[in-house]
Nucleic acid binder design. Structure first.
Ligand SMILES: [Mn+2]
Ligand SMILES: [Mn+2]
Ligand SMILES: [Zn+2]
Ligand SMILES: [Zn+2]
Lengths: 143, 143
DNA sequence: TATGATAATGGATTTCATTTTCATTTGCAA
DNA sequence: TTGCAAATGAAAATGAAATCCATTATCATA
């Protein structure tokens, strides 16, 4: 999805929620849409501050929360105590494997696992809305 | 595993680490071994304080960290910002499914999922040490 | 049993990520 | 334009967890 499309979707979301579009939100969102990592709020704020020194922590937090709610960003927590956000992947949902030595993050998709999850949940009477699957171990370089 | 066995294992672990056995550690560990939920440190501290008012939260934190390291307790984080601990399951590793309405937690085991995880990791050059799989959704009562 | 080295304790303090507060500014519908 | 609800940003508050430090406990050795 093109970043311009995302910005349009964001404006739509903001409108339906009765919120207001602001220069700060636009700039923070644009800055985020250009990233391609699992970026922390601290890192994103630093990027934002390069052009707009006066934008504060709270606005970045608030904007990213909004992007998360709207489905235009995915919040991730890899156990280091910091929330990270990533852009929507082009090819749908993925999960992560994290190196416990060098913190490298690899992504994977496995339709079979997803299916088994649903089946397992069904047996327990649950309906799955979302899930978190993280593998931790050593990457090729570190093992 | 019997709680007495666990206490013995803990003492062994403490010894090999060059640490010391104390009345507080023993009592905190015993109290924890008697639980059968995913207990938060706050809840555990409350239980501990019923008998020993002067035991502080720092000691509970430290003791549970020790139990986690020794493998006698499993630390869990279900996304509510609090670390929870659970006792070793009798029948080996399990994962969780959490109701996003009533917070009910169900446990499950699925050997096929575990196997697919290893295979997936292998393809990416990783060796899995541990993993986190949590399903979130609605339980039978809440859907 | 006393001693001394070392680890543990617990209350207080600090850290760190995140949230909230609040005075001020901004967006936007009428 | 103007009214006013929403947003902003600096600062303070929050809450979980870690750390500090004076005191206490453990334990091997004398
Ligand atoms: Mn990712
Ligand atoms: Mn469990
Ligand atoms: Zn690595
Ligand atoms: Zn429920």
């Amino acid at each position: 999805m093109a970043n311009q499309t995302k910005i349009a979707l964001l404006k739509g979301y903001i409108e339906t929620k009765g919120l207001k579009s602001t220069a700060q939100r636009d700039f923070i969102a644009e800055t985020f849409f250009k990233t391609n990592t699992h970026i922390s709020l601290e890192e994103l704020l630093a990027k934002v501050k390069r052009k707009h020194k006066n934008i504060g922590y709270a606005t970045v937090y608030r904007t990213m929360k909004l992007l998360g709610e709207s489905g235009l960003a995915i919040a991730r927590q890899f156990g280091d105590g910091q929330t990270r956000y990533e852009n929507l992947p082009e090819d749908g949902h993925h999960d992560h494997i994290i190196c416990i030595k060098c913190s490298k993050i690899a992504e994977f998709q496995n339709q079979k696992i997803e299916q088994l999850q649903s089946e397992t949940a069904k047996k327990l009477g649950f309906t799955v809305v979302n899930h978190k699957l993280e593998l931790y171990g050593y990457c090729a370089d570190c093992s």
